[in-house]
């Protein structure tokens, strides 16, 4: 069950309000996206921790609703 780009962006922004986000729909099937996310809240965290913050924002959708989300996270 795919997820729309708008919903994906909203979910992430709801959990990481200060973030700047750029999403690419890789296959147009709502199942494969890449996203670059910049947020001060990533500062001092490892990449794994930063990505987990994004996965948590998707409230269990990652790996279920959403098959692939290639992430690039930065703190500034």
């Amino acid at each position: 069950m795919p997820i729309s780009q708008e919903r994906l962006e909203k979910l992430i922004k709801d959990s990481i309000p200060d973030c700047k986000i750029a999403i690419n729909d890789l296959k147009g099937d709502g199942d494969h996206y890449s996203a670059t996310i910049i947020s001060k809240t990533f500062k001092g965290k490892t990449r794994v921790e930063q990505h987990k913050m994004v996965y948590d924002a998707l409230k269990g959708g990652m790996g279920n609703e959403l098959h692939a989300l290639m992430l690039k996270t930065k703190s500034e």
């Binding site: 990449r47 794994v48 987990k52 269990g60 990652m62 279920n64």
Partner: peptide
Amino acid sequence: KQFSNWPTIPQLYIKEEFVGGCDIVKEI
């Protein structure tokens, strides 16, 4: 996925440490 608290596959481990999935491994 439960062990690493990471929702996707693949998962790479180096010396018992979880390094990441495809995007992180590519980036590093």
